[in-house]
Design a protein around this nucleic acid. Sequence first.
DNA 1: GGCCGTCGTTCGACAATGTCGACCGTCATG
DNA 2: CATGACGGTCGACATTGTCGAACGACGGCC
Lengths: 254, 254
Amino acid sequence: MPGPIQSLSRAAAILRLLAGGERRLGLSEVSTALGLAKGTAHGILRTLQQEGFVEQDPESGKYQLGAELLRLGQSYLDVHELRARALVWADDLARAAGETVYLGVLHQQGVLIVHHVFRPDDTRQVLEVGSMQPLHSTAIGKVLVAYDPVARGELGDGPYESYTLRTLTEPADVDAECSLIRERGWADSVEETWEGVASIAALIQDRRRNPVGAVCINGPVERICQDGFVKPSLVASVRSAARAISRDLGAGRF
Amino acid sequence: MPGPIQSLSRAAAILRLLAGGERRLGLSEVSTALGLAKGTAHGILRTLQQEGFVEQDPESGKYQLGAELLRLGQSYLDVHELRARALVWADDLARAAGETVYLGVLHQQGVLIVHHVFRPDDTRQVLEVGSMQPLHSTAIGKVLVAYDPVARGELGDGPYESYTLRTLTEPADVDAECSLIRERGWADSVEETWEGVASIAALIQDRRRNPVGAVCINGPVERICQDGFVKPSLVASVRSAARAISRDLGAGRF
DNA sequence: GGCCGTCGTTCGACAATGTCGACCGTCATG
DNA sequence: CATGACGGTCGACATTGTCGAACGACGGCC
């Protein structure tokens, strides 16, 4: 039976639809958006509701995502081997660099943040775990594109969305940058996604040298850069953290 | 068509199974655990994999939860109205009390933590968002049981699991405690779930006075209690935070 | 090294199952 | 008061998912 199960694919589409729209959606909105009969959409929604993947606002009758997804998402993190091995190294890196640390993996056409260490001294930060970032304009994203053919494939052939004046929007530019990244072994992103923010990333490989993710530090340009370039000491910290995690993954087999 | 969609329920069961077992599961394990034909389980797993809800380890062929769940779980948090309104109040409470703050809602037979503010001065804490806690032995859980008939129903009629010597395991004891909680308007839990840990919780209601969740502070017994009782000043802080969040929810209509 | 057991996967037939579109009651609106 | 849109239900149909057997590959054991 090589072919997806129809009702399951539709259920997944409904969940993604609900995740996309910021507000709750009504049954009719869902059914028309996906081109389904109302009865069909209702049956799927009812099942998803029973399972806790979807909740229904009792007074408006509209639907939104359910709590079970949060619980399962947490379970995903619990099992995630890369994340488990990286926890302590990410912590050390954040302390050494004094900056925010992200750990990201390729997911669909973006970078999924699976771990986030807050900047040590600072407060009132928003946890980014579970959120997506672009591939072509972040340090983690560019590392993955440089080393993972799958990521390069997902990126497609632009032009890519521009977030600041420094965002690379042309495939040729990104590919050139990736050659550079492969040559020197690390990536940076200075105000390519957010104004005033710079980051440095390095690749994490598993025991068979497959790229499985990347780690980066993230902070205000003034602290990350000096004389227009990222500080070499920070680059060294990030690279050594990435190597440490990769080594840890390699040893994990036994 | 009042009845759940079979394939969807089965898919949900598979996801929960994968979330439960700490390690990856093979196809045969899944199919036998749920009493499904191997072909059937495979079809569901293949679809879940295409949708990103499940990932397959390429070398062992075993399955685990997928990244899409993390993303959707995050989206759930984004839409969560209670959490959005409570963010700032929880932060203030943590600062004022100098302790960890949890925000929890009823989910199935437990408390789902939807927000977690780290203790202000401390470091190296594990984020509990997305994890479940018992209903009968935590402050948040007992608040919900006391005020929400649904929660009381989910609790069932024990005996409940015992975690420490102080855990209430008999329904009668829990119900008596709940009467007290309703009388005075707050709940505590001193070493009922974890040795050395005490917490104080208060109810959060929506604009129609329905219980929607609870907020608590959580810390070592020595700091939360004095002379064998929880400190009244902390109780006052928690209750005022809960009231503030409830008020905020009530105003949210306009 | 050859055998056996188990694994994940594929296949085809069957009927159980999910799908469709029309219909119902309710609510808010004009 | 009539209208339209909403969420939800129902029953007939055939599409669709399910089952069990069979396949090829891998790994361990004698």
